[in-house]
């Protein structure tokens, strides 16, 4: 089964099914994964689904868009691997992707 793995700030891993075309944010919220707030509901307008994504997955993703870049400017602890989970669509190529969630969304 295709899967997405969320790892919270304390290292706890949670696996949820990956659904083609669904965003990582929707996968987290829909499966009750804590650590992602998604206040704007996926409009790339709040940066409360901030995650970091490590290689080899990071380079498989579509590049950061202009709107996502603008919102990432507003997160409190940005890293080179920072992304907004609402802007990443799941596909089979991302099967097993590891997604880290921060201490809190801001």
């Amino acid at each position: 089964m295709s899967k997405i793995i969320f790892i919270d700030h304390s290292g706890t891993r949670r696996e949820v099914p990956g659904v083609d075309g669904e965003s990582l944010m929707e996968a987290a919220v829909g499966n009750g994964v804590p650590g992602i707030d998604a206040d704007c509901g996926g409009s790339c307008a709040c940066a409360t689904c901030h995650v970091t994504i490590l290689e080899p997955w990071l380079s498989k993703l579509t590049p950061v868009g202009k709107d996502e870049r603008a919102m990432l400017e507003a997160v409190s602890d940005p890293e080179p691997s920072s992304r907004l989970a609402c802007q990443i669509r799941y596909s089979a190529a991302l099967d097993g992707i590891e997604v880290r969630t921060p201490v809190s969304q801001h």
Binding site: D39, A45, A47, T48, A70, M71, E73, A74
Partner: peptide, 18 residues
């Protein structure tokens, strides 16, 4: 409950919300 407009959205979203 957090899905509300009071803090605004986008690049001007309230910096002091938390």
């Amino acid at each position: 409950a957090r899905q509300h407009l009071s803090f605004g959205f986008g690049v001007h979203r309230c910096v002091g919300n938390r």
